[in-house]
Design a protein around this nucleic acid. Structure first.
Length: 269
DNA sequence: ATCTACTCCTGATTGC
DNA sequence: TGCAATCAGGAGTAGA
């Protein structure tokens, strides 16, 4: 669910917690994708958040001597609640307690994760990540060179976080549609011109999605708890058998690398 | 080095 | 209406 724009939206909503001290951290259920460190409260309780930032789809809390690496998986959300608010939602697993309010990590499927580390950039989840799609490192020449020997589909390629981060299943289909590239094409057959379209359109689409607060399909809520439902106009994703916005041809859905892929076989022929 | 298939888990939707 | 089968946005891992 959360791709880069959703994570960025969450980040912006909780940025105001910078400089706050974490009074304590409560773990109701440590069984996320990886078990949460038993000593998490000892390590970060009582310490101040210096900075909150995003790397790929991870939100990183930089505390005095530790960093918290939070991933929302497919169904995770962070929401802000008042300290006096004792309303408990199903699947609330962790609470970061502050003086006046708290940040609550909720994740029905528990595919997300929370790690405590002393140097996040060396962490196994972070160290092998590719460039940020909105940075100039994600350029046409980078993508062109990187794809030359790849036999996997271009859609699978751009969803691989070691090549470029932040692109998930929804935006992969959207980016390739806007770039007029068939998602099934082998990555190594993509031309330099097409690499330029893909990198440029990635930036445009992700930026636009961030502006409207992230896409949402079913269960994305902004950190404030309101339905973060500004669902951007999706051109192909989840539009099987509906008219292509360009040519009225019907949108095709296939399973590619075990994931749903949507495209227009005329525009992306 | 690359790639594919499998896997974790709950909830919403679909089909009978 | 009820119940079972199917599917879902992520991504590490084993094994080819």
């Amino acid at each position: 669910m959360p791709e880069l724009p959703e994570v960025e939206t969450t980040l912006r909503a909780i940025k105001s917690f910078e400089q706050y001290s974490v009074e304590s951290i409560k773990v109701y259920n440590p069984n996320l994708r990886w078990k949460i460190d038993k000593n998490i409260n000892k390590k970060i309780g009582g310490t101040k958040i210096r900075k909150i930032f995003r790397r790929a789809k991870y939100i990183i809390f930089d505390l005095n001597s530790y960093q918290l690496i939070v991933h929302l998986g497919m169904s995770g959300t962070l929401r802000i609640a008042d300290i006096k608010d004792n309303f408990f939602k199903k699947h609330d697993h962790v609470e970061l307690i502050f003086k006046k309010n708290k940040l609550i990590y909720n994740d029905p499927r528990r595919f997300g994760s929370i790690h405590v580390t002393e140097s996040y950039d060396k962490h196994f989840l972070i160290s092998k990540l590719g460039p940020e799609p909105l940075s100039k490192d994600f350029s046409k020449t980078y993508l062109y060179e990187k794809t030359r020997k790849s036999n996997t589909s271009i859609k699978n390629f751009i969803m691989n976080q070691s090549h470029v981060v932040g692109i998930g299943n929804i935006y992969a289909s959207e980016i390739l549609f806007k770039s007029s590239v068939d998602p099934r094409r082998k990555a190594k057959t993509i031309s330099l011109i097409e690499c330029e379209k893909i990198t440029e359109n990635s930036k445009i689409i992700l930026q636009k999605a961030i502006q409207v607060g992230g896409t949402t399909l079913k269960d994305f809520y902004s950190a404030e708890g309101s339905a973060g439902y500004f669902k951007i106009q999706l051109s192909v994703y989840d539009r099987e058998d509906q008219a292509c916005v360009n040519c009225k041809n019907l949108i095709t859905k296939i399973i590619l690398n075990q994931r749903a892929a949507y495209f227009c076989n005329k525009c992306q022929g």
